Simulated scan of single mutants.
Amino acid sequence: MAKMEAHGKREDESSQRRRVRDAEPLVVGGLDLRDLRAEWMDGVKQQGNTAALHALVQYPTGLIDGATKDQQERMLKHAVRFMNEFHGGDAVFAARLDRDEKGRHAVDVFMMPRHEFRYKDGRTQKRAAVSKHTKAEAQRRYGQQDRRAQGSALQDAWFEYMRDEMNLDVLPPEKKKATAKDRVEPEELALRKDRQKLQNNARKLLRADQLARKRNQEQAARNAAEANRLAEQRSEAAPALAAAEELAKRQGDSQGAERLKGLRERLKRSQGHSTAVRAPRTAPIAQKASLAVDAAFKAIEGDER
């Protein structure tokens, strides 16, 4: 109780680490848990040695925004009402919703369920027992009273309350296959989330790198194919340019012969370059060579006629 009280008053280290804003908590009863518990248990006979029950009532973050004070007060009120009714109607002596932490969807509820015990002679006595009502509910729902059945009964009842009393579109709780404890501290949960985020980012970067490599390989293949195509065009154009040049000389067209000679030399120089020739730079040469070849063929046909 002392540790829980110090945490609620923000007097411990973990509560200081979790603070992200200056906002006072919403409380029922107060923050002096030991005094409240003592007052609650005054004149009550306790069965067992448990100081109190501490329940963390978690709301679904996707269904309640939780950013406004009205929503927070509503969550606090319903958490207290549910826990009180589930534990017999006389159970809660304090509750708190922390508003200075990153998450504002959990309510801490502190309880010591009380009930009226009646002797055979008609006398009554106020008693307190932490598991009396949870065992009865587990027996009613599942026909057994072990701790797992008690936890399942509480989860199912909370689901039904949110669905029926709060009109939230909640999904039924999934039954745990393992019995190991799954409650972790917020700091550990934050570390797990950060670790998962880093792993997800690493996967995204790896996928992006793989896609980039694939695109580069595909582009290299296209460049190689284009270079081969241009090389074939040059190899076909060179003899035609030479024939057209000779024909122009025989016809006395010195200017045409010089132009064809210049094209042939340029084509020859380009053939000495690496095969990885970019299409935009070689395309004009190939186009001129193609035009020269077409002109050469036309000249040859006219000479044969």
Rank of each mutant, 00 (worst) to 15 (best):
E137Q: 13
A138R: 05
A138T: 06
Q139L: 15
R140M: 02
R140A: 14
R140K: 11
R141W: 04
Y142W: 11
Q145M: 15
R147S: 03
R148E: 01
A149M: 05
A149R: 06
Q150G: 06
Q150P: 03
G151N: 12
G151I: 00
S152Y: 01
S152F: 00
S152C: 02
A153N: 07
Q155R: 13
A157P: 02
W158F: 11
W158H: 09
W158P: 02
E160W: 01
Y161G: 06
M162C: 11
M166E: 09
M166H: 04
M166G: 03
M166N: 05
N167T: 05
V170D: 10
V170R: 10
P172T: 12
E174Q: 05
E174W: 01
K175D: 03
K175I: 05
K176I: 00
K177R: 14
K177P: 00
K177C: 00
A178P: 01
A178D: 09
T179K: 12
A180H: 10
R183D: 10
V184C: 03
V184F: 04
V184N: 04
V184S: 06
P186L: 08
E187A: 13
E188S: 06
A190Q: 13
D194M: 06
R195E: 12
R195N: 03
L198Y: 05
Q199K: 12
N200G: 04
N200V: 10
N200R: 15
N201C: 04
A202D: 13
R203F: 04
K204I: 04
K204C: 00
K204M: 05
K204G: 00
L206D: 14
L206F: 02
L206Y: 03
R207C: 02
A208Y: 01
A208Q: 15
D209Q: 13
Q210V: 06
L211W: 01
A212D: 07
A212T: 04
A212Q: 09
R215L: 05
N216Q: 14
Q217N: 03
E218K: 03
E218F: 01
Q219K: 10
A220P: 00
A221W: 02
N223W: 01
N223P: 00
A225F: 07
N228K: 12
N228I: 07
N228L: 12
E232S: 12
E232G: 12
S235R: 15
S235T: 13
S235C: 04
S235A: 15
E236W: 12
E236I: 10
E236G: 11
A237Y: 09
A240D: 01
A242L: 09
A244L: 02
E245T: 09
E245I: 04
L247I: 04
L247R: 15
K249L: 15
R250H: 08
R250A: 14
Q251V: 01
Q251N: 13
D253E: 13
S254C: 00
G256V: 02
A257L: 02
A257Q: 03
L260M: 09
K261A: 13
G262E: 11
G262Y: 02
R266D: 14
L267N: 09
L267V: 11
R269D: 12
S270C: 02
Q271T: 08
Q271A: 15
G272Y: 06
G272N: 14
S274P: 11
T275I: 08
A276N: 10
A276Y: 11
V277D: 05
V277K: 09
V277I: 15
A279M: 07
A279N: 08
R281A: 14
R281Y: 12
T282R: 11
